[in-house]
Amino acid sequence: MPRRRTLNPLTELLGAVLLVVLVLVVNRWEFSLAVLLLVVVPAVLVSGQPRRIGVAIVLVAGPLLLSSVLLHGLFFPEGRVVLLDLGPARVTQEGLVFAALMGLRMSVFTGVLLTTAMTLDLPDLIATMTHRGWNRKLVFIIGSALGLLPHVALRARQITRAQQARGLVVGRGPLSRLRALLMVTTPLVIGLLVDASERNHMLEARGFSSSGPRTSYLPDTDTAAQRTGRRVATVAVLLFAAAWLVIGAVA
């Protein structure tokens, strides 16, 4: 059940980016934790797909957090307070604190961006870019790449099956894997390039090279208020960042 949209996707995306910038600027674990608990968690819960987004966040951030704890928890030569000495590895208080701070920051980073991205209405985003007069080549690259992704993944699976039917058995050795990778990517790339060559002609025939603004079939969901809001928010965050850093340096 998708949530009701009140904001344009471009506004949502910018909001997420500014929030990340704020977290980096303020750089206090209290603030990071507050954002995590007061923004990210509620946003995931009301997203309409909490399980899917939660799993994605865990999958992306989990391994990083774990390996970060192992790395800094065990190997932190700058650490002074040694909690446990394991020969070459030493568990230090400083290392654990560092890992915790970094882990918190990474969680916020992942949580904010991933939640935004996974609830983003991509067609609407592309349409907004077009309505706002963004460079048509940039909009094409973004839109086409996002559209190709599932297609490429599907095609790779089909080719893998086709090659298995011809006798491909992937072994464990690196050479066998490299061979398998080539057997799948080569037909994949050839097919995609053949398509691209045809798409090149298609774009020219459909007037893609013409100058002047493009239009979009989808209605413009952006509003003047949101446009102003985006500008104001950007300027405000920049001013705040400058002020915070200057005060921090002086103090």
Partner: peptide
């Protein structure tokens, strides 16, 4: 090759 791939 004849789809722009950017249309939903």
């Amino acid at each position: 090759g004849q789809l722009s791939m950017m249309s939903a």
